[in-house]
Computed example of a mutant assay.
Amino acid sequence: MSPRPRKQRCCEGGCPSSAFKPVGIPLRSLRQIMLFRDELEVLKLCDLEGLFQEQAGERMGVSRGTVQRLLASARQKTADALVSGAALIFEEDELTEKKA
């Protein structure tokens, strides 16, 4: 049995840049961790703007459970990159709809 198709997610704006990395080390020599646009958006909504997961889900058009999974993944990837000195690579997801 195949999984249910993913729901389209609404994200505001675009990625600030294509990568975030330690200073002075070339990107090609760093381990790269992919952070998808919807993960970055949920991190911004919950941790920066202080929204509850239900509110973030309403803004993105997804359930609270989806927000919880995205938030856990984004936090794990961000902490890994900061602790290990890896680069965060911001990737667009094919199911992410940008809001102007």
Rank of each mutant, 00 (worst) to 15 (best):
I25G: 06
Q8H: 09
L27A: 07
T78W: 10
P5W: 09
K98N: 10
P5R: 13
V67C: 02
A100C: 09
G13S: 07
A79L: 10
R9V: 14
A86D: 07
E92Q: 13
P16D: 15
F36K: 05
F90C: 09
Q55R: 06
Q76H: 15
K44W: 04
R75D: 05
Q8W: 12
S17F: 00
E49Q: 09
P22S: 06
C46P: 03
L48H: 11
A100I: 05
Q76S: 11
E54Y: 09
G24S: 06
L27E: 10
K21N: 04
R59C: 08
K21T: 01
E97V: 15
C10G: 10
E41A: 09
L71T: 02
R6T: 15
F52R: 06
L43K: 05
K77Y: 02
V67D: 03
A56V: 08
A87G: 05
F20D: 03
R31N: 05
P26G: 09
I25V: 12
P26N: 12
K21W: 05
L35A: 06
F36E: 06
E92W: 10
E91G: 05
S2E: 15
S73W: 00
G61A: 11
A79M: 13
E49S: 03
A79T: 14
G13A: 11
L43R: 06
D47A: 09
E94Y: 06
E39Y: 01
R69K: 13
R64K: 13
A87H: 04
L51M: 07
Q55P: 02
V83R: 15
E12T: 05
F20Q: 04
F52V: 03
L95C: 12
Q76W: 07
G24I: 01
E94S: 11
E92Y: 08
S84Y: 15
L30F: 06
G14W: 01
D80H: 08
E97W: 10
E41I: 03
E49P: 00
P3V: 14
L43G: 01
I25M: 07
V23R: 14
Q76G: 09
I89K: 02
L30D: 05
T78P: 01
G13L: 07
P3Y: 10
P26Q: 12
K99G: 11
R59N: 08
P16S: 12
R69W: 04
R4H: 08
V83S: 09
L40M: 14
L40P: 02
G85I: 12
S73N: 13
A74V: 04
K21R: 08
R6C: 11
P3A: 11
K99R: 14
R64P: 00
P26I: 04
K7D: 12
Q53P: 02
Q8S: 15
L35S: 03
C10L: 13
A19Q: 01
L35E: 04
K44T: 09
K7R: 13
V23P: 02
F20M: 07
A19K: 00
F90K: 04
R37F: 08
